[in-house]
Design a binder for these strands. Sequence first.
DNA 1: TTCGACCTTCACATTAGTGGCAACGTTGAG
DNA 2: CTCAACGTTGCCACTAATGTGAAGGTCGAA
Lengths: 130, 130
Amino acid sequence: MRIGELAKKTEVPARMLRYYEEQGLISPRRLDNGYRTYDDYLVDRVRKIRGLVDSGIPTRIISNILPCLDQPQTIVVKNAEPGLRELLVTERDRMSEKIDFLIHNRDSITRYIEAIDRATVSPRQTSRAS
Amino acid sequence: MRIGELAKKTEVPARMLRYYEEQGLISPRRLDNGYRTYDDYLVDRVRKIRGLVDSGIPTRIISNILPCLDQPQTIVVKNAEPGLRELLVTERDRMSEKIDFLIHNRDSITRYIEAIDRATVSPRQTSRAS
DNA sequence: TTCGACCTTCACATTAGTGGCAACGTTGAG
DNA sequence: CTCAACGTTGCCACTAATGTGAAGGTCGAA
């Protein structure tokens, strides 16, 4: 598919898709006329990129871990670059920290919302009737 | 405490603490000589700020949800600003999405690491002995 | 008085995007 | 075929957010 279609499917502006290519995150092939052409699997990939960027992971890191996020790992692993495993472990642990942290704070927010609701729905009387 | 001590305790450079103040995330009092002075509870607060920023939450949002992350909610809730609840719900849901996404991808990375290990430790023989 | 910690202020750096433009490709109507 | 409308391309510059560096001055203890 061409860039416009991918933009619609992923909700990511075409402008941004070119930017991600510039950053080395996606590498579409080209048609004879120079237009970029994207394979279907890139739809998922672009969504992953968005999520990772939104989660505060820099594109430099993303480009390293992206190949590891696809399902059939068994084939790719053959060329195990030396530093890769270490990088992955580091990044995974960083993600785990982030997850724990986000869960903790999300739950704090949830409790706060509940406190608001309690304070709002019945500030003066214990709503006995419907 | 003064800024240097807070910087040590939080691992956040003094320069950055001034920046966060500029962004309205912390409001230290001042001594007679103009030095900033920080209460103990700000240590936790600064760590929270770091975590939230690292998780891709913009400071503009952080300044809104920070007051809700402290433990004793019951007192603060009295002045329930109208839009606050909605903002909190939105932000909490956004955090939940981020959490799910991070968990999913962290697990993918973990599986990939395991695949590397399997491919590395015994590429040719099924390691029968220790 | 000297030195380290702190102050303000201005400027610069990096990351992640966005805007605008001129030129070219594609497609469908007349 | 020609023309208009629209998608695409490359390019350059610009914005916004998050920091960082450095100059030049002040505070207070040794």
